[in-house]
Design a binder for these strands. Structure first.
Lengths: 170, 170
DNA sequence: CACAACATGTAAGATGTTACATGATTGA
DNA sequence: TCAATCATGTAACATCTTACATGTTGTG
């Protein structure tokens, strides 16, 4: 569970409430890593159950209540241990619906098959262009990590395009 | 759910029993896409419940019983519809534990941080070499798709290595 | 005889998405 | 006043992994 560590990492700097964690995290990630409330709140509850964080309800502006979470010593140790020691897996994703469907491409008309590949290539090019422009909008003030993450996305989009181009050429 | 379509695709050629589906699929995928029984059997049951496949218990050699699954007309239509029409998503995975941990790398000693990057780069190089040798063992008889899948893996491993190298250089 | 391979499954949990449900506050 | 944003959550489902449980058959 990555989100668990993302939350602990944020809380290890300062306390945050749920809504804020989502906004801050997604902004940091350049919107490349969305978080749903359906995952966020249950995860926060579980972290509290495990005594890795504590929760305190705070009155915000007027009648708005916020649940502010703080990391515990246990939580901080757990996080730092993860950061320093644990072998962390990288994900090279080749298990997706599109890739699977190519396996069965010989079942359909070769002309349709080529169309499918060209469509996907076009889709990838558009995505690449969108993220390239996004990347160029970044300034010197943009956090290094955010740039790096976008760079990673672009490199993998390059790889994917190259792959599909190779398939078309063969 | 990708596995569902993988199963239907196999059954759309000829009937298979569960164990065989796993073996055949993983072999076709060059062992890049493992399938657990904990996922396979419940998925087969669900496909049967949805009338996309039918199950028939058959006596194999001696006392061994096999549950042979066949695709129904409904299932065949469903599969072909997926193959021809549905917009299928590609997965560019940037949401993994390792990538996340880099976000917090400024919390640890820069020398340790560099070590972590170098370790991962080394790990990726080993993996790359392993798969390259695997790829070279493929012959003209090897199914095109199997080669293509391995090629995709290698291209994304290249991208990942390039990314980490860039991080080290900066 | 032991061990690998064949064959089928369940239970529990991890990790996530989508849709629903509720209500306050702010700005146009 | 109306929509966007702020704020918190639940329920159902989807997908997948790991560990457990059971028994047969073929091979050295």
């Amino acid at each position: 569970m990555s989100l668990k560590f993302a939350i602990l990492g944020l809380l290890d700097e300062e306390p945050h409430y749920g809504y804020e964690i989502k906004q801050k995290f997604e902004h940091m990630m350049g919107d490349l890593w969305p978080v749903s409330y359906g995952q966020l709140y249950p995860t926060l509850r579980k972290l509290a159950e495990d005594d890795l964080v504590t929760m305190k309800t705070v009155q915000g502006k007027k009648a708005v209540e916020k649940n502010v979470y703080s990391i515990t010593d246990q939580g901080s140790t757990y996080f730092k241990n993860w950061l320093n020691n644990k072998k962390k897996k990288i994900q090279i994703s080749i298990k997706d619906e599109f890739t699977l469907s190519l396996f069965f491409l010989d079942r359909i008309d070769p002309i349709d098959a080529e169309d499918i590949l060209r469509d996907k290539l076009y889709e990838l090019q558009e995505k690449h262009q969108y993220y390239t422009e996004e990347y160029q909008r970044y300034t010197e003030n943009t956090a290094e990590y955010k740039k790096a993450l976008m760079r990673k996305m672009l490199l993998h989009l390059d790889a994917e395009q190259k792959w599909i181009q190779e398939l078309l050429d063969s």
